[in-house]
Amino acid sequence: MVLVFAELGNGNLKKTSLEVAAYAAELAKNKNTECIAVAIGNANAGELEKLGNCGIKKVLHADDDKLNSVYSKAYSKIITEAAKNNNADTVVLSHNSTGKTIAPRIAIKMNAALLPGVSSLPDGNNFSKTVFSGKATAQLAAKTNTVVITLNPNSFKPHLTSDTASVEKINVSIDAKDFDYEITGTEKESEGMVPLPEAEIVVSGGRGLKGPENWAIVEDLAKVLNATTACSRPVADIGWRPHHEHVGQTGITIKPNLYIAIGISGAIQHLAGVNQSKCIVVINKDPEAPFFKAADYGIVGDAFDVVPKLTEAIKQIKSS
């Protein structure tokens, strides 16, 4: 049996939940077994049934309003219990902030091998995972019968059907000490934008943009593409852009379908966070900029000239 954790946010399934559900369903099919999902916290009407779209037949729902935020102890306890009660030997979560927090606990509780940040279905018993910040791939073999897998966001595309899943409420035994911290506040950072790790298109600016007052051209391009904005590290360090936009080896790792780098030289530490993007476009006035070696498409030119033209051209294509 494969058990997948389908995370809710404000009562709705997260985008990553559909990815992990589809991955887990496929994994179960390959192993000739069943896949069930577990969801924690309140869900909006009809929401959990949608997991059927990804190939899940049954969803266990720990429906408790005290569990609308992620608590590492409570969540890992509920998921581990659900795995034990259903004889699951495989547990799948997203490699997002929640998965990274609770998967290690679940792995220890189940005495299972933890395979963090995999990006494809296993080949037999071997899982592949990018290592050295995207500069290489490792084949990992689990030495245990039980495994816990966390799947990189944006690496498995669900093929949705119109099937629906059945939902079964489960009772959980949670006590005060399972709430290992008290959440005192939350603040949205990138208002209206898809969070960077989940974004399919990212438009990013570097020191070549000269100053924060020039970011409108980046934001306009991002807007027509429905993209999320990012930046290089020095740009965040000097305070031109907020820290959470910094991508790279010491920032956020992303793997969007499209990454547009504007006025970024392409230092190895920057590339380490973006080199798994499926398509890379570089706009830089220096033909020798190292980023061109990692790019699929490029323009050698002045960003202040090229970017508004690109925004306009994309707008035209989109409206035709």
């Binding site: 091998a113 933890l114 791939t137 490792a138 084949q139 030495k143 070696k293 498409y297 000239d305």
Partner: peptide
């Protein structure tokens, strides 16, 4: 619990396709 069996390097990127600043539309 987990053994690293083997490693591989990503396939070499093909050459970048360059466009002129006068033909941004083509990009």
């Amino acid at each position: 619990h987990v053994q690293s069996v083997s490693f591989s390097l990503p396939p070499e990127k093909g050459a970048v396709k360059l466009f002129s600043p006068d033909n941004v539309k083509d990009l």
